[in-house]
Design a protein around this nucleic acid. Sequence first.
DNA 1: GCTATTGTTTAGCGTTTTCTAATGTACAAT
DNA 2: ATTGTACATTAGAAAACGCTAAACAATAGC
Lengths: 105, 105
Amino acid sequence: METIDNHNIYADADIERAARCLKAMSHPLRLKILCVLGTEAISVQDIVEKVGTSQSNISQHLSILREKDILGFKKDANRVFYYIDDPRMLKLIEMMREIFCAECK
Amino acid sequence: METIDNHNIYADADIERAARCLKAMSHPLRLKILCVLGTEAISVQDIVEKVGTSQSNISQHLSILREKDILGFKKDANRVFYYIDDPRMLKLIEMMREIFCAECK
DNA sequence: GCTATTGTTTAGCGTTTTCTAATGTACAAT
DNA sequence: ATTGTACATTAGAAAACGCTAAACAATAGC
């Protein structure tokens, strides 16, 4: 019966935010997009080739990641280059690699 | 044109596995369950109280986490105690807290 | 035996996700 | 101008999700 309910260590707002972030990464294609991006800025066309699905499909997934402020982009003439804009996401990607790829070498 | 296609650094199997894991965590209630569990084994009833939704709903989410081998459980008389069984998941939870709760203090 | 407690499962329904296919838009090159 | 390239958007259908409510199962206590 404290002033602040400490039976709940985790703020629901943090949980919601984290869950939304995880959800964005939780699709194989989106996760792969994030992995191939890493710290680079890559054009949609190149992403399509590296990830391997239709251009329309990639575009839709990019739009999802864009809406959640995970990706940024810059246009250059005909092309659009996407990059990971959220530093937390970069950390997460790195950690995911450590955790899920450590034993598979 | 190497023997192993290195235009693709990330094995699709790893991606799939990681994505499945992320998906399991990507629901607010499930994430919260994992957070309150931490390294402990907690009964369903206690989880219900700490997480805050119906018992049936918690049970369903527990079942999802169980199916994906993220949670283990042991029965004791009337109760069932759940715990995080996958060490990778524990790491992930820890990292999530660092990333999403670091700046919010 | 009953009754309460603890937990799981099923059914059903509305919502969300994710894909394919088609269309639209903008710039480039000729 | 028209043709090609790069990308976004829309529409629509199938599947997956997530909830409430209800039924079910197992143990505990009387």
